[in-house]
């Protein structure tokens, strides 16, 4: 316990420190655009991992809730003329409600059937946007979303400095919140349901209740992310529900790794940077991504984060054992986390 708590606090301080430092490292407008994009995708991928990775639920609806959050932000600011923060809160609320509603049709389903139904939800959202042009702007979308303002200050000024801070802080806070969730009995119950549903149910875990809550939280996080996306790029259109976004998000999660909370963030950063470098390849770019993701799934199924964790563990082992007589093999252990 005494060993664990400081390491957790140090890690959290590290997240926040990175968020503070980022705007000073990336100064050029083009690099700030790239970093903001990476941070938005990091929010999308890390929050998606709650249901997909830790919950083991093939929840494609997360991408749809991202789009709905984006449209909620655009409608609140453009049609309702709300200020940024109430609009953001509205997007989070809409995401949470839609997240909960999305779970209802899949209550009795498992595995691939959940994937199919939730993907259909994304497609329905796509067509609803086209079918309701008065509200959504149809195929033209809702351009001209105002830049986000906090306390009268636009986040877009000074080359998007405010957006960088806001998004960096959002990623840091999201990682901390996810850590707290996964350290709680609720988080453990999601892992338990994923790994052994029958045993979990016989230990008092109500599958429907826990997964419903996970969908609501997932929806709220996706709604927030979609709202930030729209507030940053200043437009909401049907591409928010596109298949490309779904595959991009999944690639980020699997490339980064699902076991570590920060894994999808690494995946998002790597893919955004690689994507930027591959712009010259045009149509070949998705092919390269697909091949890269398949390669990772085959050769490093735990993703980049698992490889990094293994590497650090090996390094620590060597440093600990250097200069000592050989000891018996160490049993893998975890500290009494969250106790």
């Amino acid at each position: 316990m005494t060993k664990y708590v400081p390491s957790r606090l140090i890690r959290w301080a590290g997240y926040l420190a990175i968020a503070v430092v980022i705007p000073y490292v990336f100064v050029a407008p083009s690099s700030r655009l790239l970093v903001c994009t990476a941070l938005i995708y990091a929010l999308l991928a890390a929050s998606w991992n709650l249901t997909l990775g830790f919950g083991g639920i093939f929840n494609f609806a997360h991408a749809g809730m991202f789009g709905i959050g984006g449209y909620a932000m655009a409608i609140a600011t453009l049609k309702l003329q709300w200020a940024s923060i109430p609009s953001l809160a509205f997007a989070v609320l809409v995401g949470a409600v839609v997240g909960g509603l999305t779970y209802l049709p899949v209550i009795r389903m498992r595995g691939i059937y959940i994937a199919l139904i939730t993907f259909v939800f994304v497609q329905i959202s796509y067509h609803l946007v086209l079918a309701l042009p008065d509200l959504t702007g149809g195929s033209g979308g809702l351009p001209g979303v105002p830049a986000m303002t906090i306390a009268g200050q636009s986040l877009a000024q000074y080359g998007g400095l405010g957006y960088l801070w806001m998004l960096g802080a959002a990623v840091a806070v999201l990682l901390i919140v996810l850590e707290l969730i996964m350290a709680s009995p609720f988080g453990h119950s999601l892992v338990a349901l994923r790994d052994n549903e029958q045993l979990a149910r016989s230990r008092g875990v109500n599958r429907v209740r826990q997964q419903f809550i996970a969908f609501v939280i997932s929806g709220a996080m996706a709604g927030f992310t979609g709202a930030m996306y729209v507030a940053y790029f200043r437009v909401a259109d049907v591409s928010l529900f596109g298949f490309g976004l779904v595959t991009l998000g999944l690639s980020m999660i699997f490339l980064g790794g699902t076991k570590q909370i920060w894994g999808p963030v690494v995946g998002a950063v790597v893919i955004t940077l690689v994507n930027d470098r591959l712009t010259g390849l045009d149509a070949w770019s998705p092919v390269v991504f697909a091949a890269g993701t398949i390669a990772v799934l085959i050769f490093a199924p735990g993703g980049i984060s698992a490889a990094l964790t293994r590497g650090v563990a090996v390094l620590r082992g060597r440093l600990t054992n250097s200069g000592r007589p050989s000891t018996s093999s160490q049993t893998p252990q975890r500290s009494v986390e969250h106790a």
Binding site: P185, H188, V191, D195, N196, Q198, L199, N206, A339
Partner: peptide
């Protein structure tokens, strides 16, 4: 209990039982 030795492999022994204690 169940046939074979079924536990939640990624949780510690304490977390395995604490989960049950919390929900039961």
């Amino acid at each position: 209990t169940f046939q074979a030795d079924q536990v939640f492999p990624e949780l510690t022994a304490l977390e395995n039982v604490r989960l049950a204690a919390h929900y039961l």
